[in-house]
Design a protein around this nucleic acid. Structure first.
Lengths: 230, 230
DNA sequence: TAGATTGTTAATCGATTAACAATC
DNA sequence: TAGATTGTTAATCGATTAACAATC
């Protein structure tokens, strides 16, 4: 029953049926901190050390990691590289996912110029837009096609992720097109709620505007408190 | 004790000492949906109607809104415009916040070209970068200054928000500079954990990479389930 | 008034933290 | 072996949902 510690058992089995999404959303953060440790050449860590540098309880760290099985060793702690690799694996790094970006505006451009995808083992295949002046060009080496050719493109190539960076008005239609084309997930940057109940597609929202507003709430509340103090 | 319903009482008092951050993070979403209703000319709504179109329980909606006082009327529901305006107010729209963008790369550019800030009553003042070829230029009408002039700039103008879009390595230093310059909040797009314990500054993270990874987790899990079915 | 829907309290559920036995 | 730290169960805390009295 016990986990044999050969330090390379890549096949991780989920312990629970469904892992709480709160836990999943914390995984990338663990991944980042472990990546930093790895870069610094740290070989070994513990839940209490991670707790100190990440500002969460060691209990939570152990509880979280144990949703996926035992990554540590009693009396020793965690092997940094092993834990990092295990979480990479959980997060699908090196699953060789592929991505297309729908909307070649400033944001789409910015994403295509970033190394965000490569860093996570994701291949950028193409961009799509409606603007004739963009169609046929390349952005950072990525070809821009007309949105009308999205369906046929996805029939020829396996596309896992569609990034949605169109203007708000075009977003629902573009999202449905991506779903029709069979992408597994949509990364939604549009300021629109995307709901595709008739398709089996994962949707991850990047509502930047919501984040900005949450910040503003904080600033406003802070201001109120300050003026109360006087 | 009861709320006089004159439909324009802008001074909203917080009921509880501290509103749960889960509630605050839902406010922008309420705001978006109410904005849509308002655009469609809807005058009146109810927690059960909102529940249906937003996919959350009506109980939660009533509970959330009641953290800030009574926006509704028994037997009637909520006046759309009044509720929208009240939430706008909570979120600091028309507080006339100002913003500077540190990092004039592709992402900084994209943000400065978007209408995201104006839509929330926030004024874009300037951008800052280290690149000589950018300093002295304008991006969408916004001047780009050298990062070295950030401090003196903020002494002359009231800057509420600093947007951090520098490369990862430059982020901690830039963040501290913003804090030193006295901004109230930092909107952090860098793939770095910013912690400024010695400054009293609000930090809101936009960890796009984390969001992308959470999506990939979903895709991977989905794939595993599918291959199990076979 | 009767009907509707809020505001609010109580019950439930889930997530976080604490504690400790297992074990390296 | 003794010390350390995990994995895991139990206790606590907070957030969500249900229920209903207040009231428009």
């Amino acid at each position: 029953m016990k986990n044999e510690k050969n330090l390379e058992p890549k096949q991780i089995a989920l312990k629970r049926e469904t892992v709480p999404s709160a836990v999943i959303r914390r995984l990338p953060r663990y991944h980042r901190f472990l990546g930093e440790m790895l870069k610094k050449g740290k070989l070994r860590t513990s839940s209490s050390e991670l707790s100190a540098c990440m500002g969460v309880t060691s209990s939570q760290i152990r509880q979280d990691l144990n949703c996926f099985g035992g990554f540590g060793q009693q009396g020793y702690g965690y092997n940094v590289k092993y834990l990092y690799d295990s979480i990479s694996d959980l997060l699908g790094v090196d699953e060789h996912f592929s991505v297309v970006v729908v909307g070649a505006g400033n944001l789409g451009r910015a994403l295509v110029f970033s190394h965000m995808f490569e860093h996570r083992g994701i291949t950028k295949l193409a961009m799509f837009d409606v603007k004739d002046s963009l169609v046929g060009t390349q952005i950072n080496g990525i070809p821009v096609y007309h949105i009308d050719s999205l369906l046929s493109f996805c029939q020829e190539q396996k596309v896992d992720i569609g990034v949605l960076t169109t203007p708000k008005d075009a977003a629902p239609e573009a999202a449905e097109l991506l779903a029709k084309a069979g992408v597994l997930g949509i990364w939604n940057f549009s300021n629109m709620e995307i709901s595709l109940p008739s398709y089996d597609v994962e949707i991850e929202n990047m509502h930047m505007g919501d984040s900005l507003m949450a910040l503003c709430y904080g600033l406003k509340t802070r201001k109120l408190l300050e003026s109360d103090d006087q």
